[in-house]
Design a protein around this nucleic acid. Structure first.
Ligand SMILES: [Mn+2]
Ligand SMILES: [Mn+2]
Ligand SMILES: [Zn+2]
Ligand SMILES: [Zn+2]
Lengths: 145, 145
DNA sequence: ATAGTAGTGAGACTCAGTATCATTTTCTCA
DNA sequence: TGAGAAAATGATACTGAGTCTCACTACTAT
């Protein structure tokens, strides 16, 4: 998916939510696009030095409400943000329990389809309406082992 | 798995970590055992009225380090605790994005095995050592829909 | 008993995240 | 164009889940 599409889609989603696609917000989207996985606030602050923290927090919240980005929480106390799956592709996370680093990965289509089917069946038993699933692998990353 | 087993196993794990299985810790384990899913601190405080917050926090951290309990973070700002899988069975979570409630559920053995195989293969490509996986369904619970 | 070690609990403290508000930017429409 | 309305910004104050401290208490072993 090209840069132009992401920008257009982000603008459209924000517009639907009655928000503007300002420079700050463009820079946040660009920073997330450049990352190889979800980024912490600290990482974003470093990537976009001149954006003040309050603007980053406020805008990430707005971008999340507009479904442009997704907030991810792992066990290490720092929230992370990534582009929503509309703007990327469905994928999962490798989480290093040692250094906290998070990397994206994807399953092959067959496995993903099979999993989806099994999940919907399992959820039905509890009268639960599934809207998404989230699958993380916990372990040790290459540089920590 | 019976109550006696859990208590014995918890005592053994704590002992390995050079900690005692005190009354406070027994009550925490019992409270988690009684829940139908992972519990927030607030829920534990209510279930075990006379345990002070500081003791609950401190002991849950110790129990986590000793692999007796697992800390779970969702997107709703409140950490949750449940018994570690050694003491229960491998399972997953239905998370209601509306009310925040978390319920346990399990996949059938075949699906679980297949998933495990696919995950290890995918992780290998990134030089990642998998030690566990975590699978959540996000959606709306029966009472919220 | 006595000493040493582990656990307790009230309260102070930390810091990621949120709220506030005066100022600045952007949109709208005459 | 230009004035007024609406939205965004950014410095700063505030909130609260979670952590730390420390005097005290409860075990445990000799
Ligand atoms: Mn998937
Ligand atoms: Mn599983
Ligand atoms: Zn690592
Ligand atoms: Zn619900």
């Amino acid at each position: 998916m090209s840069d132009i599409d992401v920008d257009e889609e982000a603008a459209a989603l924000l517009s639907t939510a009655n928000h503007r696609y300002t420079t700050s917000r463009k820079r946040l989207v660009a920073a997330l696009q450049a990352g190889e996985g979800p980024l912490t606030i600290t990482q974003i602050v470093e990537a976009e030095k001149s954006l003040p923290q309050s603007t980053i927090y406020r805008n990430l919240t707005i971008l999340e409400e507009a479904n442009v980005v997704t907030r991810i929480v792992t066990n290490d106390d720092f929230a992370r943000y990534e582009l929503a799956e509309h703007l990327t592709e469905h994928h999962h996370h490798l989480i290093c329990s040692d250094c906290g680093h998070v990397i994206d990965f994807a399953l092959d289509a067959e496995t993903e389809a099979l999993l989806d089917k099994a999940l919907h069946q399992a959820a039905e038993k509890s009268g639960f309406q599934v809207s998404a699933h989230q699958l993380d692998l916990i372990g040790t990353c290459a540089s920590c082992s």
